[in-house]
Amino acid sequence: MSKTVLVVDDSKISRMFIRQHISAKHPDWIFSEAVTGEDAIAMIDIEQPDYCTMDINMPGMLGTDAAKEILGKYPHIRLVIFSANVQETYQEQARELGTIFVSKPVTESSISQAIDYFLDI
């Protein structure tokens, strides 16, 4: 059964790269996109994806705050924090949320980290 992935990122290029890299490994997975944390929360309230990638710095709320709200309501969603801001404080926040922090840029290697987490490998 194909999986669903919600890509949350205000950068069109990042969303495109994340989709491309994941699709290359899992062509049957289905994607949806959100540009802000608020949009992501609204979308997930309607339909929960299996997996989610979440940027941190976006217009409106921080991705870490959106992730906290999403995982509080839907703990079964496998969510990774995907950010260019690699300061330890954000990595620590990801750990506190019980998820993982993957540093950008979006590359085959960083996407592999996310997919391994999604699939619990």
């Binding site: 950068s11 069109k12 290029i13 990042s14 710095n57 260019a84 801001n85 690699v86 950008k104 840029p105």
Partner: peptide, 13 residues
């Protein structure tokens, strides 16, 4: 779009 993302990545790094 590309430069915005690249600049964001490089400056943040």
């Amino acid at each position: 779009e590309g430069m915005c993302e690249l600049g964001n990545l490089m400056i943040n790094a």
